[in-house]
Design a protein around this nucleic acid. Structure first.
Length: 299
DNA sequence: GTTTTAGCACGTCAGAGGAC
DNA sequence: GTCCTCTGACGTGCTAAAAC
């Protein structure tokens, strides 16, 4: 990318203004001001400055002025200023309805089904468990087992397993097979409630086995019971942590998807601008030609 | 070669708005 | 009213190019 586009446009967002005001009113630490300079840089990225003013830009400017004049923005006004604009998908689809040349951002099936994008679609998890290594195991109603590794990326860290006895649990051994991308040794997962053990074998194609446990839980395995069976504060805390991790994971994916859509949206707008510029140029030329014809006729 | 600058991607938080 | 999704804002780390 060309460095010539690296310019500050000298515009600070309303939220930042208010944040600065709040900080200046309080005691702004050195760390905060250091981060602030970074934030100013982040606020004025060329890419962001190219985003057309779709909504709330004028109020933002008003607030800018009022912030300077009054020095204080009450929370209600701030709320008004910071009100959210329509999603990129909506905007783009509206644009595409106006202009046939503009491609639509496709609705993703995974979103419709409630699953985060990039994550393999599966049923609604009926049980969620956490291992001592921090991995999450979700067992869906359809029998699919999903293993999520928080340390890795949300997409890469997910492995979907298919149970052969899905639907009707049977006593005895049940082999569960899945194709692990990075098998790195034996993993053991103890699932409470249904008296089953999920155990992974080492090798290129690990197998997960679910059966009636003959021994107690191995040391180090952290159990997170299903909601509704929580009693102790520790269990509640674990449940809260689990929920938080799940929420963060979903939000992580949502943010990625949002950024992708934003890029797509900006690309579409840029291409539309290019098309309209060409159209405008043609119309101007046509107008000039017609003017010439008229003037030559009058002469 | 080291430091600075700019761009980018990411994770997280907060809040609006929709679905239920 | 609650839950979930989406998106702006913020902070951070990485990388490449420019400046020294």
């Amino acid at each position: 990318m060309s460095k010539c586009v690296k310019k500050y446009h000298g515009k600070i967002t309303v939220r930042q203004m208010t944040m600065e005001m709040v900080e200046s009113q309080q005691d702004g630490s050195a760390a905060e001001s250091a981060a602030e300079s970074d934030a100013v840089r982040m606020q004025n990225l060329p890419g962001q400055s190219q985003i057309p003013p779709i909504a709330q830009v004028a109020p933002a400017a008003d607030a800018d002025e009022s912030a300077e004049s009054e020095g204080v923005i009450d929370s209600q006004k701030r709320r008004e200023i910071l009100s959210r604009r329509p999603s990129y998908r909506k905007i783009l689809n509206e644009l595409s309805s106006d202009a046939p040349g503009v491609p639509k951002i496709e609705e993703e099936k995974s979103e419709e089904e409630g699953a985060p994008s990039g994550i393999p679609a599966m049923g609604v998890p009926t049980s969620l468990y956490q291992t001592s290594t921090g991995q999450y195991i979700a067992i869906a109603q359809g029998g699919a087992i999903q293993i999520s590794n928080p340390a890795s990326d949300g997409v890469q860290g997910l492995q979907t397993l298919t149970m052969t006895n899905s639907g009707a649990p049977q006593p005895g051994a049940t082999i569960v097979q899945y194709a692990a991308q990075t098998p790195d040794g034996t993993q053991q997962f103890f699932v409470p409630g249904s008296q089953v053990v999920v155990q992974a074998a080492t090798g290129d194609m690990p197998a997960y086995q679910i059966r009636t446990p003959t021994t107690a839980l191995p040391q180090g395995v952290v159990m997170a019971a299903s909601p509704g069976t929580l009693h102790s504060p520790q269990q509640l805390a674990e449940e809260a942590t689990r929920k938080r991790e799940l929420r963060l994971m979903k939000n992580r994916e949502a943010a990625k998807e949002c950024r992708r859509r934003k890029k797509e949206y900006i690309k579409c707008l840029e291409s539309r601008v290019a098309v309209l510029e060409v159209q405008n140029k043609k119309l101007i030329e046509e107008l000039e030609t017609l003017k010439d014809i008229c003037s030559s006729k009058t002469d």
